[in-house]
């Protein structure tokens, strides 16, 4: 075996270990979300005389949010595919698409939060709204962190191009982003679709 192929093997091994570590972090994050879901399910009828989900949520609005986030999950996967094939231009295009869609999702979510808050339904109003803002807000916080991470990756790619280290980070980012979409499926279903009924 030549020296470079030994080095290559080492890097590959390191990548596998890091990805497994990151996966296990994602699992613990899922437990955090599961706890918040349990709280929400328990408190969702405790509106304390305030507005309920049926009064607050708009189905077309939440469908728009969902499709935007789903599409961004798809484009982040394509960015990873392009990066693994060492195609810098395609990687950047798909990452930028992911960033724009993610930012659009976040601004819709924040818009919704401020609309609720201004109409007298803040997180202090009832148990239902406290748990709603905590659950959906925690998801939004993850999205925010993901967007900052994405910005750092795009900056790195512009400066230094593709290498094994950034492909590994990009793979982790893509796992993170896909998981946020999986969590959102359940927010969409449990909070919004069950909430309007």
């Amino acid at each position: 075996m030549t020296k470079t192929s030994i080095l290559h093997n080492e890097i590959q091994k390191e990548t596998e270990t890091s990805l497994l570590g990151f996966w296990i972090y994602m699992m613990t994050d899922c437990i955090v979300f599961a706890t918040l879901f349990a709280v929400f399910i328990v408190l969702r009828n405790n509106t304390s005389g305030g507005k309920s989900g049926a009064d607050l949520f708009s189905l077309p609005f939440v469908l728009t949010e969902t499709i935007i986030l789903l599409t961004s999950s798809f484009t982040s996967g394509l960015a990873m595919l392009a990066a693994q094939r060492s195609r810098l231009k395609d990687t950047l295009i798909w990452l930028l698409a992911t960033g724009v869609l993610g930012a659009a999702f976040l601004s819709l979510e924040l818009n919704e939060f401020s609309k609720f808050d201004h109409s007298g339904s803040s997180w202090r109003t009832s148990g239902f709204l406290s748990s709603y803002f905590t659950l959906v807000g925690t998801h939004g916080l993850h999205i925010t962190i993901g967007l900052l991470w994405l910005l750092a990756i795009i900056g790195y790619l512009f400066k230094k191009g593709l290498n094994e280290v950034i492909v590994r980070r990009l793979t982790m980012f893509s796992i993170f982003w896909h998981f946020l979409d999986v969590v959102w499926i359940f927010i969409f279903t449990v909070v919004y679709l069950l909430g309007v009924n």
């Binding site: 189905l59 469908l63 969902t66 499709i67 789903l70 599409t71 798809f74 996967g77 394509l78 595919l81 499926i185 969409f188 279903t189 679709l193 309007v196 009924n197």
Partner: peptide, 19 residues
Amino acid sequence: YVFGFVSSLIFTLIAWGIV
């Protein structure tokens, strides 16, 4: 990826459509 995306979209729309 395309298959995953399209079927996710369909499942979302069906669930949303029912409600």
